[in-house]
Computed example of a mutant assay.
Amino acid sequence: MTKQQNEQITLAPLPQEELAIFKEEIQEAFMKGLQDSFPEAEDSTKMGPLPSEEDFEHSLTVKDSVVRQIVLNGERIGGVVLNINPETQRNEVDFLYIKANAHGNGLGTKAWKAIEAAFPETKVWELHTPYFEKRNIHFYVNKCGFKIVEFNHKGNPGPNIEGEEPESDEEFEFFRFEKVMTEESSEL
Rank of each mutant, 00 (worst) to 15 (best):
F146S: 03
E116P: 00
T2L: 13
F172D: 07
N160R: 00
F22C: 01
V71G: 01
I9T: 05
I70W: 01
T45I: 13
E162C: 07
F119I: 02
L34M: 05
L19P: 07
N136Q: 10
T182I: 02
Y131I: 14
F119Y: 14
E121G: 08
K113P: 02
A118C: 07
P39M: 08
N156V: 01
S65E: 00
G108C: 03
S168P: 07
E171D: 11
N142K: 15
F56Q: 08
S65L: 07
G106C: 03
A111Q: 04
F22N: 02
T129W: 01
I148T: 02
I77W: 02
N152G: 02
V180Y: 09
L96K: 03
S65V: 06
R76Q: 09
T2G: 13
Q8W: 12
G48D: 15
K113G: 08
D36K: 08
H153D: 15
P120Q: 05
S186M: 12
F56D: 09
E121L: 06
L127K: 09
N85D: 15
E150V: 00
T182H: 01
V81I: 15
I98D: 04
I70K: 01
L50I: 15
I148E: 02
T109Q: 09
E92K: 14
E116Q: 09
G33P: 00
N73I: 00
K134L: 15
Q16E: 14
I148V: 07
F38R: 05
A117T: 03
N152K: 02
D55P: 00
S185W: 01
K113N: 06
L82A: 04
N85T: 05
F177M: 13
D55R: 06
W125M: 10
E121P: 00
V81R: 08
E42L: 10
E92I: 08
L72I: 06
F95V: 08
Q16R: 12
K99M: 15
C144S: 05
P49K: 14
F139T: 04
E7D: 15
E18H: 15
E42K: 14
P166T: 04
N142M: 13
K3A: 12
K3E: 15
T109W: 00
I26M: 00
L72V: 13
K23I: 04
A100Y: 14
G158W: 08
V180H: 12
P120Y: 06
E165T: 13
V67T: 11
K143L: 11
